[in-house]
Nucleic acid binder design. Structure first.
Lengths: 254, 254
DNA sequence: GATGGGGCCTGACCCAACGTGAGAGTCAAC
DNA sequence: GTTGACTCTCACGTTGGGTCAGGCCCCATC
């Protein structure tokens, strides 16, 4: 039963995992990742469980989690809890990035339009102080982008129809506002009523929006920074919630 | 007429920008952000240009750029160009993170037993450059016996999937193989012949694919991790080349 | 069995990007 | 003129490592 193949020295493990030997030493000294055992001469020997643990460490570390937090996390046995906690952090980082994109857009727009910003405007996304007139910004800056996105979708799927964008934009705003209300009330995405939204999409496209297409649209939302930025601005975490709700809705209505 | 309102002490600027006084001291000592002037008693006084510079610094710092690189960057080009290019980078990171969150959600759902989920679902939405990490993490999470299934799922993925896709899969494979050959032969994207591909797309859609729609499809490809993963497995760099070729083709045929 | 050339060990110091005081001067108000 | 908030300049602490330095250890080759 000699599985010498499954034993790694520091160097071997380092190479396998794409890290440095120094990092393994470091993690050892922090008690974050100890070798399976140490030889009589003091060589660290790692095995499969340590490799797996290292990979999980690297996964969390890739999300900028401090090592002590990772150690804590790995100590709490439940995998679902770990993932959930991790999800929260990534989601938070996502919202922050969305806010930064929003401010970048606003900054660039103002630089091009020569309208000086107030000091509060400049630093909106960085400190904890959020809120403010995102609504106004949404209409002013992203209204146009949104129209362009929709026009793009329509072109993709059915080239050229009339331009009734503005009235439909108004409609969308109402629909979205309702959904945001549901979201902020803690409504389960399974229970969201997306009939109005799906109808709106169908109207935009100029032909029926099937359940499958609607589900695809959810994917598209998540793949498109513009959409994420837009929805995150409406409410933190809303983009994820909406996409999930759309997917679930499509499943129930296919 | 001096506007005292537009002058800030360290503390004032720090509060406005949501940073600490220490950071401003630090940036000063690094020559990254110097005050507009220093009073006789040594107090740092900042004005509008410094405020703008700080904002830009914070944009880059939020993306984990080292301060020395930021200093370098600030010395080059103009502000709008820098910010525009930066916006794109952040946007890219954003959609990657969104894909990660979606995966985490599905993984959590599966672990909770909400919905049976295929390996393909797990694998699919991860950013390409992190696929190796993600696979490793999957192995760590689900155990060694998962490795084989992951390998199998990858084959499935590169073989194409989806109900609609399957029917016309053979055709597409032929078309793509030809394009990959062109790409690997170093063919200029301008000169790629995409007539067959565009026709295939039209067939898929069930109605004509206009040049504009085709160009937009290229954008969609680049925005969608699914497509990128698929084309990158065909040949490294192929997804970028194809998207460019499609854009150029659309331009020539509109 | 001797002799390399690796790989491994433990310190030890260095780095960025700040946090966190310490001790002292400054400002504005009451 | 005293108080309290603010500022200044050191200066050391922290995190996640990089980068030697000096000394063992292992194994292949002569």
């Amino acid at each position: 039963m000699e599985n010498r193949i499954e034993e790694y020295t520091v160097g071997e493990l380092a190479q396998a995992a794409g890290v440095t030997v120094r990092m393994l030493h470091h993690y050892d000294s922090l008690e974050l990742l100890k070798p399976a055992f140490v030889t009589a001469k003091g060589y660290r020997i790692y095995r499969q469980p340590e490799l797996l643990r290292l990979q999980e460490i690297l996964f969390y570390r890739a999300a900028n989690m401090p090592l002590n937090e990772i150690a804590e996390l790995l100590g709490t046995g439940n995998r679902v809890e770990r993932l959930t906690s991790h999800r929260e952090k990534v989601a938070k980082a996502l919202s922050e990035q969305a806010a930064i994109i929003a401010t970048l857009d606003r900054t660039i727009a103002k630089l091009n339009g020569d309208d000086p910003m107030t000091i509060e405007d400049l630093y909106k996304p960085f400190p904890k102080e959020k809120q403010a007139d995102y609504e106004a910004w949404l209409v002013a800056t992203y209204g146009q982008d949104m129209a362009a996105e929709i026009a793009r979708s329509r072109e993709n799927l059915s080239a050229g129809k009339g331009d009734i964008l503005n009235s439909q934009n108004e409609q969308l705003k109402g629909i979205e506002a309702e959904l945001v209300t549901s979201y902020e009330a803690g409504c389960d995405p399974k229970l969201a009523n997306l009939a109005a939204h799906q109808n709106w999409v169908a109207e935009m496209w100029g032909y029926p929006c099937t359940a499958a297409a609607y589900a695809k649209l959810a994917e598209l939302y998540l793949a498109h920074p513009d959409f994420i930025a837009r929805y995150e601005t409406l409410s933190e975490g809303f983009s994820q919630w909406l996409a999930q709700a759309m997917t679930l809705w499509a499943e129930r209505h296919k």
